[in-house]
Each structure stands twice: as structure tokens, then as C-alpha cells.
Design a protein around this nucleic acid. Structure first.
Lengths: 190, 190
DNA sequence: CCTTGAAACGGATGACTCATCCGTTTGTGG
DNA sequence: CCACAAACGGATGAGTCATCCGTTTCAAGG
């Protein structure tokens, strides 16, 4: 279960691969391992050894961003007003999904299938559940809404904003926040 | 610009291809033309001649469903109350997207890129624009919302419902309508 | 500094998918 | 019945994918 310490050259290669993959993701290119290998001037087998599938590589690329969101979520837990806390976190989530193209596919995938980010995603879900529970307790949100509604809905909002492929990422993020507002208006109980 | 009448055997093959593709779509399989050809016991080249790309085949599969939705839209135009009319149409759209897996990718694609359904989709957009304009005129909807917001938002709602891959299509449709309601609550001005 | 074994490397390769080309067959109007 | 255009279909070359295995590199112990 423990990770044996990585050899120096291996660590470096791994790093190069992730860097290259990050560039691919940002450019909207699909992660083809053979292709990434060639670009990074690294043997194909090496890439496959580090990342058995494109999904695993994508997860690894997305991990730092998701961890950052997790910290933001934990920060939101400190906020007093339950509605503000929830709203703040959801806005952060949307912004994250629209800013980093590596994130949406990871969020949309079933958590169980995630080798790398599964744990992080579960902790995110826990934090979110807590925020939602508080909102419910305070009666400021539609009582019929559950966590397993909210996550897909968030992905849906991000998806909607992402369809506007002509817009640049910043504009898309703004649009996403606007769409989130619409949704939240529908959910808010004053 | 006109379609020269199709030879009898050609028409039959075309029909067989579409039928097979429909089964693929319903089973959630991706449309690989070579594969469809083998399943339909038709030469690969024949399939490619009728449908140069998987997208074209998918569009053709989706066309009847989209045409049906168009008729529903025109029917909604006859409804007096602008809010009811809009709502009715949007519900029909969501239901369509969640019932027929061929539709969402077609709706999400840029209309200009659609050889087969482009025209149909444009007429749908026109009808929808009319419904939206009436709602705006009556002041029953968020004045900031435009057609180019609504279409992605609809796709987003459908996407959200579709993420629940464990549910069967009927349940997903119900869920989608619920999500639509949330969104509409956010948009409605009483 | 040298040895040695484990760890990591990388590219050649076979399996697989894709889409086109072209020789053959089939339908149809005269 | 003929002739020709229309349509057919499978063989094939281009391209992608992921594995295998012979070679190289690292680092711990002498």
C-alpha cells in the first residue's frame, strides 16, 4: 500500500510527462499516451509504466487543482452563514471546473473508478455534504435537494458554459457563475 | 442541390444501416462505421458512401426524433399563456434529449457543422426564439436571459440527468424534468 | 572508487482500427 | 434484351495503441 521511494531519473521523467500532459490539456488536445511520449522525448513504455491509461494521467494532472478546491471547501466550512458558505463553495467549484479543463472529466467520472483522485474527491464530497446539511438545517435551501442532485447539477452548469466554445476561459468562467446564480435562485429559500 | 432519386437496393441498404445504427445508439455503443457495416452485413464502402462520418450517421438517426420535437414546438406556439408555452416546449426538449441518446450530441454540436439536421435545428431555434420573445414581452422571465443562454442550459440539464448512469432512461427523464423545474424557478418572474 | 542487482528505460513490434480504392455486380431506361 | 450508370464490397495501406524484452542507469554496500 505504501509508495516505495522513486528513483531520481524516474521522478524526473514522471515530472516531464505530467508537464507535457498539462500543456496538452490546456491546449484542448486529447491525451494520447504515445503522442505525449513523443512530445516529451520519452519512451512510450516509460509513459505507460507511470500511467497505465490516459485517464490516470489526466487525474494526476488535475490533482493539484482539485486539492486546491478541497482547501477552499474547508475554508468555506469556517463561514458562519450557511447560505453564503454553500454558495461560496459552489462558485469555487464552478470556477475550478471552467478554469482547468482537466477537472470536469474527473468530476463526471464515477468516484470508485478513480485511482489517483478518488480519495481527494471523497473528502470534497464530505465537506460539501456538511455544507449542504447546514443549509438544510437552517432551512435556506429547497428541502428536496440532495448531494447526489447537486454534483451532477454542478457538472451540468459547467457543461453549459463550456459549450460556448468560442469564448475564452475567463469569459466562460463568468458565464458559468451567472448560470450558477440562476440555479441557486431556484434553490434558495429566503 | 436536389436529391437524385435513390436506386431500390441503395435505399434498402441505407435503411438497414440506419436501423443497425439506431440499435447501437440505444445500446449506448459508439458508432464505428466499420463495425456497423459488419453488423448490418453490408460492405464498409457502402456505409461510408451513405454516411461519410459517424456524425452524419448519428444525425440521420436523430433526425426523426428532432423533427417530432419541432412539431411539438410549433404546437406550443399555439398556446396562449407565454410562460406555459415556453415551459411546455422546454419540457418536451428535455424529455427528447433524455429519451433518445442520439439527440444530445447533435444539439451540443455547432449548428453550422450539421449537414443533415442543420435546417431542422435552425427552425427549432426560430420557434424557440419566438416563444422566448413572447415570454420576455409578457415580462414573465428574467430579462437578462437570451436564446444563446437557454440552449446550452438545456443541454446542461440533460447532461446532469444523464450522469446518473445507473438510472434507466425513464427515471432519467423524470429527473431531468425536476432539474428543469429548478432552473425555471430561477428564471420565472411572477 | 568499484561492484552488483534491482529499477527504470525505450523502441521495435504485432494487434487493431480506420477509410479509400477499384474491380465486380446490379438495377433501370431505352 | 442491351448498355450504362449506379451501387456494391472487400482487400489494403495508413495510422494508432499498448506490450515485450534487451539495454542502460541508479544507488547501496564493500
Amino acid at each position: 500500500m505504501s509508495t516505495p521511494p522513486l528513483r531520481k531519473d524516474a521522478a524526473q521523467n514522471r515530472h516531464r510527462i505530467i508537464e507535457t500532459a498539462r500543456r496538452y490539456v490546456d491546449d484542448g488536445k486529447s491525451l494520447q499516451l504515445n503522442d505525449v511520449a513523443r512530445t516529451a522525448s520519452i519512451g512510450v513504455a516509460t509513459v505507460y509504466r507511470h500511467f497505465p491509461t490516459p485517464e490516470a494521467l489526466l487525474e494526476t494532472v488535475a490533482l493539484p487543482t482539485i486539492e486546491k478546491l478541497l482547501r477552499r471547501a474547508e475554508h468555506s466550512l469556517a463561514e458562519d452563514d450557511p447560505w453564503t458558505a454553500l454558495r461560496e463553495f459552489l462558485a469555487a467549484a464552478i470556477e475550478t471546473m471552467l478554469t482547468d479543463p482537466a477537472v470536469p472529466p474527473v468530476f463526471a467520472a464515477a468516484t470508485d473508478a478513480l485511482e489517483v483522485t478518488g480519495d481527494c474527491k471523497r473528502r470534497l464530497a464530505t465537506a460539501f455534504a456538511e455544507l449542504l446539511a447546514r443549509a438544510h438545517a437552517a432551512g435556506v435551501i429547497d428541502p428536496g435537494i440532495t448531494e447526489s442532485d447537486m454534483i451532477p447539477l454542478m457538472c451540468g452548469v459547467a457543461y453549459a458554459a463550456n459549450i460556448q466554445s468560442t469564448l475564452d476561459p475567463t469569459e466562460r468562467a463568468t458565464l458559468g457563475l451567472r448560470y450558477l446564480d440562476l440555479l441557486l435562485t431556484g434553490l434558495h429559500r429566503p
